[in-house]
Amino acid sequence: MTATIPTRRSTEEQASAIPSWRRVLGSEVAARVTFYVTAFLLWVALAAAFERVPGPLSVVDSLVTEFSRGEVFSNFADTFYRFTIGVALSVIVGVVVGIVMGLSGLARAFFESPVLVGLSIPAIIWAFLTVMWFGFGDASPIVTTFLTAVPFVIVNVAQGVQGVSRDLRDMSSSYGVPLGRRVRDLVLPAVSGYVLAGVRFAVIIGWNGVLLAEWFGGSGGAGFRARYWYDANQFAGFAAWVILFVVVIVVLDQLVFERMARRAFRWRDAAHS
């Protein structure tokens, strides 16, 4: 008895045989859109079912009111000022300590425990502590942002430095490549991905930190304004600010860090294309 093996089609042939509407539905963009639509519908349903969940219309109304009063830009200006200083400090200190930890076993032994402690303390604890230490003002959110973010930068950078290939370092030594060129062309590119990942973590974690510190001890800022609506029992206003928090971090991540990562790793993307 003979068996007939059906002619198999190439992936290109298979792709062209699929109708375009099915290709669109099966895309990653469609998956993302599906999530947003589902989340929105769930929100509408929850708002209809529970009185204390504000619906989309009342939240949009609150947002428009906050914008028209000038509250959004002035409060975000305060928050960004504190956030930028806190993150910048955490990146500077984190990169330096991370490089030292990556290069020296002694430094690793010294910093390992404090970094672990830093990683294990949540932002809310730092927010409480800094408000107790520094009171209401800029210092609390700045220090909270710094303390929340810096351990993540340190851990990532230290891992990156330790991960610089021994083979490539030996190759550089064999050819007598000068130290400056080694740092510029070997160490920094090897570590850049880890630094980027560390800064990305720092921004996300630091954003939590600054909002929490403003919530508990701010005299202005986005976190303070969200607290204001919460205390006033106005959940639509509160939800409007929560949406703004999320939008800011998503825009920052997608517009800044995604692009930076794509540029830093273009050699890897090209190799896999």
Partner: peptide, 10 residues
């Protein structure tokens, strides 16, 4: 070397 030891980002 046994392996090429090229910097992948260059």
């Amino acid at each position: 070397f046994q392996d090429p030891r090229l910097l992948p980002w260059r």
